[in-house]
Amino acid sequence: MIVTGSSPWAAAEALGTSVPELAAFQDEPPQMKSGTVGKTGYLRLGFETRGSRTILAILERRVPYLAQRALYCDQEMPGLASIFLITTTGCLLQGDRLALDIQLGRGAQAHVTSQSATKIHGMDTNYAAQTQAITLAEDAYLEFIPDPIIPHRHARFVSNTQICVAPSATLLLSEILRPGRKHHHPDECFGATIVSLSVAAARPDSRILFREKLVIEPERFAMRQTGVMNTYDVLGNVILCTPPDKADRIFEQVDSDIRLTDGVAFGVCRLPNGAGLIYKVLGRDTAQVKAKVREFWRIVRKEVTGADLPPPFLWR
C-alpha cells in the first residue's frame, strides 16, 4: 500500500521506496535532488457534465506537468472533452516524480491522451516514478490512450495506476511499451535497467476487482525467449473496465490470433470479478500494435456509446 504525504506527488516518492525491485537505486542524483521543484509534476483533471457537453471543471497543475483546456475535436462525439497531457521537460529524468489524478463525475465523457511518446532517459542514479489515480462515477466514460512509453538504455522507471470505477462506468486504459530506441544503437533495444508497471482496480466501496504487475529487468532476464517477447519488440496492454453485459458483447467481437508472417499476436480474456476485459498485443513495430489497439478501441466505443471513431490524425 502506498501512503501519501501532504503533497500529491508524495505518493510517487513513496512508490519508489516501497517496491523491492528499486531497492538498489535509492541514491540521489548529484545534479538536483529528487522531489525538488521542477522534478515533481502534478496534474489533476476533474470532468463534469454541463448540458450536452462534458467540461473540464477542475484543473490543478504543477510543472513539468501541464494541460491547457478541453477540446471538442471528435466529430463522432461532439460533447466529448479531449485533453492532451503535456510535460514541459519533454522527457523523464532521474529523480523525477509525477502524479496524475483524473476524476469523472456522473455521466461525464472524456478522452485523455499525451502530446507525444513518454521518453525515459538513461540514468546512472536514482529512478523516475509515476502515480496515476483514475476515478469514474456512475455512467462515466473515459478513454485514456496515451502515446507509447520509450525507455532509453539504462532507464529506471516505476509506475502505479490506481482505478476506482463505479459498476455502470467504462474505462478504456491503453499502455504501449516500446523496447527503446532500437534504431539508434544496438544496445538500446531492451536496454533499460528496470521498468515496473502496476495497475489495480476497485469499486467505490473499496472491493478489489483485480491487480496486475509487469516487471521488466533485461539485465537479469532475457527478453528474447519464448514466453517473454521472443521475436516481438512492442507490447500493447489494454484494460477495459465496463459492465458485464457490455463486456460480453465486446468479447464476442474481438479476435485472438498469432500471425507469424505479419509479426503480430493478440488476444482478449476476461478480468476477474466481472470487471471487464484485458486485451494484449505483441508486434514487431509500433504501428502494428497501435492499429490493433485502435481496432479494439473502435469496438468498445461503438458498443458503449453507439458512436464510431473519427479518422486518425495524420501525425498519428
Results as ranks from 00 to 15, higher is better:
residue 98 L to V: 00
residue 134 I to D: 04
residue 111 H to N: 13
residue 105 G to Q: 04
residue 107 G to K: 10
residue 51 G to R: 13
residue 306 G to L: 10
residue 191 G to N: 01
residue 240 L to M: 01
residue 33 K to V: 06
residue 312 P to I: 07
residue 13 E to H: 06
residue 266 F to G: 09
residue 61 R to S: 05
residue 265 A to M: 14
residue 206 S to E: 14
residue 68 Q to E: 15
residue 145 I to Q: 07
residue 57 A to S: 14
residue 168 S to V: 04
residue 309 L to N: 08
residue 311 P to Q: 12
residue 275 A to M: 10
residue 258 I to W: 10
residue 235 L to M: 04
residue 120 I to E: 13
residue 49 T to V: 14
residue 111 H to Q: 14
residue 8 P to V: 03
residue 6 S to Y: 05
residue 206 S to D: 14
residue 5 G to W: 02
residue 72 Y to A: 13
residue 270 R to I: 09
residue 78 P to W: 08
residue 15 L to F: 01
residue 70 A to Y: 07
residue 237 N to D: 13
residue 101 D to G: 01
residue 2 I to P: 09
residue 168 S to F: 06
residue 138 E to K: 05
residue 34 S to C: 00
residue 180 G to R: 07
residue 128 A to D: 11
residue 160 N to M: 08
residue 18 S to A: 15
residue 280 K to G: 00
residue 111 H to Y: 15
residue 302 K to G: 10
residue 215 V to Y: 01
residue 19 V to F: 00
residue 27 D to Y: 03
residue 107 G to R: 08
residue 82 S to I: 07
residue 150 I to C: 04
residue 139 D to A: 13
residue 267 G to N: 02
residue 78 P to A: 09
residue 261 T to W: 12
residue 250 I to P: 08
residue 190 F to L: 06
residue 256 S to T: 15
residue 99 A to D: 11
residue 218 P to I: 13
residue 206 S to W: 01
residue 151 P to Q: 04
residue 7 S to H: 11
residue 305 T to L: 04
residue 13 E to A: 09
residue 273 N to I: 06
residue 219 E to C: 12
residue 186 P to I: 00
residue 212 E to H: 13
residue 73 C to Y: 08
residue 139 D to T: 09
residue 2 I to G: 02
residue 146 P to K: 01
residue 281 V to Y: 02
residue 35 G to V: 05
residue 145 I to W: 14
residue 89 T to V: 02
residue 129 A to N: 09
residue 67 A to F: 12
residue 173 L to P: 00
residue 96 D to N: 05
residue 15 L to P: 00
residue 29 P to G: 04
residue 296 F to P: 03
residue 240 L to S: 03
residue 143 E to L: 07
residue 121 H to Q: 15
residue 135 T to V: 12
residue 210 F to T: 05
residue 158 V to A: 03
residue 194 I to G: 10
